[in-house]
Design a protein around this nucleic acid. Structure first.
Lengths: 183, 183
DNA sequence: ATGGAATGAGACGTGAATGTCTCATCCAGT
DNA sequence: ACTGGATGAGACATTCACGTCTCATTCCAT
């Protein structure tokens, strides 16, 4: 088995992050293998997407681990999370829109766990008095995904510099647009 | 010509906002006409999307007009913009992801004009000292679209209450997550 | 070197959606 | 009532991606 499933998934993720409609053939070529081999390792497009979803979930979970969401103040944790999530942003944006299509179907339970963790982070910030409470933690979670996704696309299209992205997202989330009085 | 193009477009927009992959047949049925008639009024799927894009551009432009972006302080104008944009949020989210697919192709010039207006609003806020200047107006524009889109989806899936949405988006953009010291 | 496993190339059938066309029907204005 | 335009229903060809399969080739371990 010369083909590394993980490597194929990485390539697929990178390609689909750019062109979400890439065909199996394009994905195979991007991964440097033939379409036949791609099908040997993944039952079909659906299976590939599922595997990709699983990978994205694991990577985001790792990003959360690395961000140590429970340590320090919530603001710092959020900053670390944004920074760590940057790596996965592309796939995340893809999976985000992809999930939008599965209307009725049950969503991967993995997402629920991740949502819970982010939700808990915002909740903690609110309970510790750092975050405002008139914006629900649920909405903040959605906003987080939205900004990460929008940021990934903006970078992809060259409208925003990749180096600024982490700072841009974190600062917007934390401080908003208004000129801050403090600091 | 009993069929009202504008009405068909409205129905198509409503449907595609929910299911971006709806077929021509589904769109036709949603509009209460046959597929044949749909094709009589729009050369093809591509033409339909283009027309939808045009409609979205016009509606967003109207929303901007209604929001009177140049009047009052920038924060108030942004609040009004978010409120007005709410109506178009669904289609906007659809067109936003749709545009993501046209990588190389030239984007509809209409978008550029709209971007310019939003960009100018953020710029004005910065120049008047209301908005922070360490976040580029370009990024703020992207963030605006991202939050509006994410908000529309969150409402669609029932994760956020529609009534809260305008306030949630505007407040997050303006004030961020941090508990405000002022006010 | 050799034998088995993995791969690449490509043919093949399938299904879905598109776009075109025809024909019968319906409706409105005269 | 009549007539012309618009519509609905459906057949039809086409395209495209998918999934399956075969066969020759390559690669690796023994």
């Amino acid at each position: 088995m010369a083909v590394d499933r993980a490597r194929v998934l990485e390539e697929a993720a990178a390609l689909l992050a750019r062109r979400s409609t890439s065909s199996m053939d394009e994905i195979a070529r991007a991964a440097g293998i033939s379409r036949a081999t791609l099908h040997r390792h993944f039952a079909g497009r659906d299976a590939l997407i599922r595997a990709l979803e699983q990978l994205g979930i694991e990577q985001l979970a790792q990003a959360m681990d690395a961000a140590r969401l429970d340590e320090g103040d919530a603001a710092g944790a959020l900053r670390r999370l944004v920074a760590e999530a940057q790596q996965v942003a592309g796939v995340l944006a893809f999976l985000f829109t992809e999930n939008q299509l599965f209307e009725g179907e049950e969503v991967n339970a993995g997402w629920a766990r991740l949502d819970t963790r982010i939700h808990a982070l915002f909740r903690r910030g609110q309970e510790e008095g750092d975050f405002r409470i008139d914006l629900s933690a649920t909405w903040l979670t959605e906003a987080f995904y939205g900004l990460v996704g929008a940021g990934a696309w903006a970078v992809q299209d060259g409208r925003v510099a990749r180096n600024d992205l982490t700072h841009s997202i974190a600062e917007l989330l934390l401080g908003g647009i208004r000129r801050s009085m403090e600091k």
